[in-house]
C-alpha cells in the first residue's frame, strides 16, 4: 500500500531522502503496517509527539491503509 508521511519541525530530518522539509513523502508499505512500525522504521526519537492520519488524531497502534496521509508533529517546550 502507498502511504504519504509528513514529518514536522526537527523530525523532518528523519525523512529517508535526507532533504528535510515538511512536504509529505510517499512510502510503499506492507498491508497492515501500524503507525508505530513506521515510527520505528524511520528511527524517530522517543520524544513527545502528536500523530494525525488524514487530518485527524490517531493512536500509534493503529493500522494504516492504502492512501492514508500520516503526519507527525513534535511539540517543543516554551510557554
Amino acid at each position: 500500500m502507498h502511504v504519504d508521511v509528513a514529518l514536522f519541525a526537527h523530525l523532518a530530518a528523519f525523512q529517508p531522502d535526507g532533504k528535510g522539509g515538511r512536504a509529505p513523502r510517499s512510502f510503499e508499505l506492507p498491508d497492515g503496517t501500524t503507525i508505530a512500525e513506521v515510527i520505528e522504521t524511520l528511527g524517530l526519537p522517543d520524544q513527545p509527539r502528536v500523530v494525525f492520519v488524514n487530518g485527524r488524531h490517531a493512536e500509534e497502534d493503529a493500522a494504516l491503509h492504502d492512501g492514508d496521509r500520516l503526519a507527525i508533529f513534535p511539540p517543543v517546550a516554551g510557554g
Binding site: P48, R56, P75, A77
Partner: peptide, 18 residues
Amino acid sequence: EAVDRADTKAMIINTVLR
C-alpha cells in the same frame, strides 16, 4: 494550551483531540 513542557503539550493535544 499554554503550558511550558513539551510532554504536557503533547499530552493535552492527544487527550483533547481524542
